[in-house]
Design a protein around this nucleic acid. Structure first.
Lengths: 148, 148
DNA sequence: AGATAATAGTTGCCATGTCAACTAACCTGA
DNA sequence: TCAGGTTAGTTGACATGGCAACTATTATCT
């Protein structure tokens, strides 16, 4: 409840969300700088990574895992297929479903991309201690779970 | 350094970044659902909020504070001006600079928007204790500072 | 004093992500 | 068995955000 002449109050939960919005936008831009070398956006790279981690996998599960819009995932999958980074096969018991797996070419791009990300993330997060890092991972993992 | 047949390794810093990318995309979409009622995107709303918090302010400082791309901030400022949510005046000693402040109409939108955000954020973060919340704010604030 | 560099902000172009509507396949209940 | 509902994925339309190049102004250096 706000007082007329005061600044609109933001509760602590909204402070969390605001930081996530700002950090998210920043990292999306920086991550896309890295992935553009492979002709991919950062969302495309993250989808490829998810297919590699959890594959073989269908699009619905990718949507749930990453909380991406399904039309976006569909378009990304189409592009990754066109670039020969993934293979698509049919689900054996449901013809609507497509099963996705990373190709060797895709794996190579992932390997190189992860090297670059690991390097870059280590640099901007250089000021974090091991304790800070573990704490951050725990906090963020918890937030991801709440979002799902 | 990765072994040929194993999954590309991601270090802990990259785990942090990945969570931020996914949470950021999710919150951007959800936040835009809320702000679309005011004819604004979530980035536009965040800029308006920043002008209200730190104003009067120039565009360069908004770019630094939010780590947004300057052409984006310029376009957002133009739209907020067109919608009569902010006023623009010239810097007194540098004609390149424009000084931005929120109008009463803008303040009203902020107040209503913050109410909706506070509500929505409280809901999806319902599972967090007060200790979790404080810890999350501390972690995220630290990450924002490292990013700047 | 003037040339050059840097800065604050603007704009055109374009790829992307969202939204809504769609198709094809599967599930459920009568 | 079949109508209607639900689901997995696709696609068109469109607004937006990023990139690069730009203008106008200020700062710096010779």
């Amino acid at each position: 409840m706000t007082v007329m002449t005061q600044k609109p109050v933001q509760n602590k939960q909204t402070q969390i969300a605001k930081h996530l919005l700002v950090l998210g936008a920043f990292l999306q831009r920086e991550a896309s700088r890295i992935t553009s070398d492979f002709g991919l956006t950062q969302q495309q790279f993250v989808v490829l990574k998810t297919i590699e981690e959890k594959g073989p996998i269908n699009q619905k599960d990718i949507c749930c895992s990453l909380m991406f819009e399904k039309s976006n995932v569909s378009k990304i999958v189409k592009k990754l297929k066109r670039d020969c980074l993934i293979d698509i096969s049919s689900g054996s018991d449901d013809n609507r479903v497509s099963i996705l797996a990373v190709t060797p070419k895709g794996r190579k791009i992932l390997e190189r991309g992860m090297e670059l990300f690991n390097e870059w993330n280590s640099a901007w997060l250089k000021g974090l201690s091991n304790g800070d890092i573990k704490q951050a991972i725990m906090v963020l993992r918890n937030l991801v779970n709440l979002a799902r």
